[in-house]
Computed example of a mutant assay.
Amino acid sequence: MQVTFGIDVSKFTSTICELISKSKNELTITNDCSGFIQLLKELSAFSKHPQIIFEATGVYSRRLQAFLKIMTMIM
């Protein structure tokens, strides 16, 4: 089963589309610690690491990128 998280990053929030096989689920998180924890909970629901794709939007996406980089080192 292929799981992909597509993330659209904006200034205050990020919209996440979870694509699981042929179904999808969408949620919005804040671009802060509580939003990243919510994202981590979504990611940890899968035994295999899902593919994560997001648009590099300069300063808006740097915190998300740093968070995901740290999480991949830990996991």
Rank of each mutant, 00 (worst) to 15 (best):
I16W: 00
T4V: 11
T28R: 11
T57L: 07
L43W: 13
E26P: 00
I7M: 03
F67C: 01
F54L: 07
K11I: 10
H49Y: 12
I7T: 01
L27Q: 06
K22V: 00
G58F: 14
E42L: 14
S61N: 04
T15I: 02
T28W: 02
D8H: 00
S44F: 09
G58T: 10
E26I: 14
N31G: 10
K69C: 12
V3C: 03
F46T: 00
I29R: 06
I53N: 11
S34F: 11
E55L: 05
G35V: 10
I7Y: 06
R62M: 11
F5V: 09
Q51C: 09
V9E: 06
N25F: 15
K24L: 04
D8I: 06
G6W: 09
Q65G: 10
I52N: 01
K69Q: 15
T57Q: 01
F5S: 01
V59G: 15
Y60G: 01
G35M: 04
V3P: 00
G58D: 10
S34T: 10
N31Y: 09
V3M: 01
C33W: 11
R63V: 01
F5E: 01
M75Q: 13
K41R: 10
I74C: 08
P50I: 01
T72P: 02
N25W: 07
F12Q: 15
F54D: 04
E18Q: 13
S14D: 03
V9W: 08
M73K: 12
V59S: 13
C17E: 06
G35T: 08
F5N: 05
S61D: 06
I74P: 02
T30W: 12
M1R: 03
Q65W: 12
K41I: 03
Y60F: 12
E18K: 12
I29M: 04
M75K: 11
V59C: 15
F12H: 15
I37N: 04
T4S: 08
T28D: 02
I74A: 07
H49K: 15
G58C: 12
D8E: 10
T13N: 15
T4D: 00
I53G: 07
C17G: 07
T30V: 10
R62L: 12
K24A: 09
Q38N: 01
I20N: 08
K41H: 07
Y60S: 02
I37F: 03
H49D: 14
A45M: 11
E26T: 15
D8Y: 00
L43H: 03
F36L: 12
F5W: 10
N31D: 09
L19R: 15
S21P: 01
A56T: 03
G6H: 06
E18I: 11
K22Q: 07
D32P: 03
T57M: 06
M71S: 09
T72D: 13
K22M: 00
S21G: 09
T4W: 02
F46S: 05
L39E: 07
S34P: 02
T72W: 07
G35F: 06
F46C: 02
K22N: 13
N25I: 13
L40Q: 10
E42A: 11
